[in-house]
């Protein structure tokens, strides 16, 4: 179908419709960045008394345009309230740890589920897939009790452990797809060479599972980078606070001042956007791979 890319008038209509969708997609983001650089007068509109005529002049808000006065100070305010840099690092630390744990645990489980022959492995697989439908929030009170008994509240582990547990099902689902593509001959050859299961797993299978890391990683990242409720309840000290909680808290600080709110929104969005723009094809491919394998 690709070859017959002829000029068709219907294509123009399709393009126009798609461009409208693009506009709907991007405009809120554009608006966010512009109001992060405006002051309240420009955002809300204001009025002043004209000295020459003595009449009150209403200046309407500037919604769509670029800022007339670029208020870079909004970014200063947003950065200086709370500790955005620290929160960002915390989020990063939590996410990477969760990805590491999820990858290791799900690769190992997948190996046992697909490469080792035993009774009940189908049942065990179904058991793990239950996790796909369990809503993370529904577990909050018991998990709180468990973490508190283990003295883990208010540590990185308070977030890493539950996030990893809730990412596990998806991780196993994706890994099964990827591991299925690895030929069984390799295991057999290694077995004949005298390798035990552990050696086969670490020397033969794990290196071939590298592409799966990206896919499992992206799904896991999406799950834990944004999580708000656990992060609010399980961590009370600012030392371990993650970005969504920090941003949410900042909104409480500037309720009427729109500029710093916009700046905070932009700061919190920017890093992921930059990574996405740089790696968009890889991210999409990994994402698609997960869907197809799953």
């Amino acid at each position: 179908m690709r070859e017959v890319r002829k000029f068709k008038p219907s294509n123009i209509i399709v393009h126009i419709l798609l461009l409208i969708l693009v506009l709907i997609n991007l405009f809120p983001l554009y608006w966010m960045v512009t109001f992060s650089l405006k002051n309240n007068d420009e955002i809300l509109g204001y009025s002043y008394v004209d000295e020459a005529t003595g009449e009150r002049v209403l200046v309407p808000p500037n919604h769509v345009g670029l800022p007339q006065h670029w208020e870079w100070g909004n970014y200063n305010k947003a950065m200086n309230t709370g500790n955005m840099g620290q929160y960002f690092i915390n989020s990063l630390a939590v996410s990477t740890s969760v990805i590491a744990i999820t990858v290791i645990a799900s690769f190992m489980a997948t190996y046992a589920l697909t490469r080792m022959v035993w009774k009940g492995r189908k049942m065990m697989n179904k058991f793990f897939m239950l996790g796909l439908t369990i809503p993370i929030h529904a577990a909050i009170v018991p998990v709180f009790t468990i973490l508190s008994k283990m003295k883990l509240l208010n540590t990185y582990a308070a977030l890493i452990v539950p996030y990893a547990a809730f990412s596990l099902s998806m991780g196993i689902l994706i890994s099964i797809g990827f591991m299925g593509d690895i030929p069984y001959d390799l295991d057999e050859a290694a077995f004949l060479d005298g390798c035990g299961v552990w050696k086969i797993f670490f020397r033969v299978i794990a290196p071939l599972m590298m592409p799966a890391i990206a896919t499992v990683g992206i799904y896991t990242f999406l799950q834990c980078w944004n999580e708000l409720l656990f992060a609010t309840i399980f961590v009370s000290s600012g030392k371990y606070r993650t970005l969504p909680v920090g941003v949410q808290q900042l909104f409480g600080q500037y309720t009427t001042d729109w500029g710093p709110i916009g700046a905070a929104l932009t700061i919190a969005t920017l890093p992921t956007m930059i990574v996405y723009i740089l790696l968009s094809k890889r991210i999409q491919d990994s994402f698609i791979a997960g869907a197809v394998k799953g």
Partner: peptide, 27 residues
Amino acid sequence: YKLNIFLFLLPALILFIGILIAPIIMS
């Protein structure tokens, strides 16, 4: 062999049962 199966499943099982299944029962 059985021990190995168990060990391979162990990390996932601990997480899964400890943080997902036990809470359902507790809830």
